[in-house]
Write a protein that binds this DNA or RNA. Structure first.
Lengths: 331, 331
DNA sequence: CTGAAAGCGCTAACAC
DNA sequence: GTGTTAGCGCTTTCAG
């Protein structure tokens, strides 16, 4: 900046004024400073400026999602980026990988870099450790999973209701033996979806069968193996409710190779790529990751703009997409 | 930091030493400082420190990909993140959206935040504007597309060769009327893949037919419409080479709805989600996005560690995955 | 409309 | 082993 000032024959503060588009600088001076900056390829250092600036904004945001490679997370990320771009805010993106340590290290990495706000998917049993930052005015919005030990804005899918819808759909098709395949019960969404499944069965007077409920399915291969086990049962399920997108893919693969894909009904939670082009096409309870990301990002910026209201829960609706696999009737 | 120093009853520099794990501090003092830092919830400001530090590293990296929501880009991103994590480097991720303006604004956003290195997918006709940063010691690695007007490390897929492989495969199945469906020719990968297609046809003595080559397909819908047009031709193609993943999806949809998916052969460039589960399963020339991301990230860090050798071209191999759609013979 | 001086939170260089 | 001083690149404050 000093170099630019010297070259333009002005003081350092004038350069600062021009760069920050502050008023009270003559057109001519502005032009001269701009020319000098151009010539020296001057790039202002945002961090040096923010050191002394009143609001201390870094125009930066930290985003922690399940995995940047997962289609659901990627869609959330994209939505956040689009909103952030409008405000010239850059986003740090990280993957959680369901690792509690990673939650902590990512959050700390964000905080040391003085992000203006945080959008987080979490796995630690408690997020109370973030209370200080929240009080300190750093907006935090939790996405996809509800936090514990802290009151903060949260944007989640209507997990239990969506799962209920899926199970009701299968019940309406005449199924009574409906299997549940889900993630680790440590994960908020897995618990909620299972709750929806159980409640709906009970409401319908169907006694849940422990042999038809399988948890801890954290990859496709495990889901496939679980389906093989289910089909080998004396009285196998006539329908499957798969509570997560990767699990659904594993279920489809396994059903296919057992030749059971047109016999056993399937409804998945969260949409699956190419679902409409599969045979049978896959009926799903679709989430709306773009809305989740958008709502979360807007909330962060609203708070940054001074919004001061109690923490709020945003629940994003799901949508049952009927495509074929969920309309197979029990034989 | 001053507060921590006061609370611990030491000088500010001692706190700095403890935080940065510098030697020559007594165990006892370390313990005292740590306790004070804990108590005050002290978070060092990485940017303030880097202002004076000799190497001026921000432990931050800028990544620009096609779109964070595209599976190919997402896989590149994930690989970069994994490598960066090992070094406690955070990554800013942005989407290009094939918009030249966005390339410039993203790069500038990264630069103003003083990233240590850049991994970029570009669309501007020239990247000469980055010469100054490169000379200044900021490592830049171009991924997926070769830059122009600048000598820098580049990691790309063997586009022309992969396309050749696809077309040779179709020729070997007996096809002579092979259509090409591709992206905007402004895009490096689209040009390269088309070149591979054309060269291979010519080598085989097949005269390219302009009516069978369609460019500028930048979404699924356009690809679908293009296929419909092709099928309406007097002598329609017996095979299709689709040069990009979104286009392949559009082609499949269209072929399906025309009832031609088991009659017209298809080989896609870049793998498609669920490809193995479709009917027929989709033969593709698979790329290796994880390797691309990993090589690019390692290269950035090698340069940051002082590696000083001429810019290099890394070409990542493709792999033909035979699944069914590409093995349909002409009727 | 413009500039000089102080200071943001930290590290470098040097003293003790 | 520990503290002091200067200064990183910028904004703030205040004087002109």
């Amino acid at each position: 900046m000093k170099n630019v000032a010297d070259l333009a024959g002005v003081g350092i503060k004038t350069v600062s004024r021009v760069i920050n588009r502050e008023p009270h600088v003559s057109e001519e001076t502005i032009a001269r400073v701009r020319r000098a900056a151009e010539q020296l390829q001057y790039q202002p250092d945002i961090h040096a400026g923010n050191l002394r600036r009143a609001d201390r904004r870094t125009d930066t945001l930290g985003l922690l999602v399940g995995s940047v490679a997962n289609p659901f997370s990627a869609a959330v990320h994209r939505a956040v980026e689009d909103i952030a771009l409008e405000r010239h805010v850059a986003v740090f993106a990280s993957s959680l990988d369901e690792d509690p340590e990673r939650e902590l290290s990512s959050v700390n990495a964000f905080l040391r870099r003085r992000v203006d706000g945080l959008i987080l998917t979490t796995i630690q049993p408690s997020q109370a450790y973030l209370g200080a930052q929240l009080d300190q005015g750093i907006p935090i919005v939790f996405v996809d999973r509800r936090p514990h030990g802290i009151e903060a804005d949260t944007v989640i899918t209507e997990n239990a209701e969506g799962a209920s819808g899926a199970v009701e759909h299968l019940l309406a098709m005449g199924h009574r033996r409906i299997a549940y395949l889900g993630d680790d019960a440590k994960i908020f969404t897995a618990r909620e979806r299972k709750r929806g499944y159980l409640d709906t069965l009970r409401r319908a007077g169907v006694a849940p069968d422990a042999r038809l409920m399988i948890d801890n399915l954290d990859d496709e291969a495990k889901a496939s193996a679980a389906v093989a086990d289910l089909l080998a049962l004396d009285d196998p399920p006539t329908a499957i409710f798969s509570a997560q997108n990767l699990i659904t893919v594993g279920v489809i693969t396994s059903l296919r190779s057992a030749g059971a894909s047109t016999r056993v009904a399937l409804v998945g939670f969260d949409d699956v790529p190419m679902a409409a082009l599969l045979e049978p096409a896959v009926t799903v309870v679709a989430q709306d990751p773009a809305s989740i990301g958008e709502i979360a990002a807007r909330r962060v910026f609203d708070r940054l703009d001074g919004l001061d209201e109690p923490a709020r829960d945003f629940v994003v609706p799901t949508r049952l997409i009927v495509r074929g696999s969920g309309e197979i009737r029990p034989s």
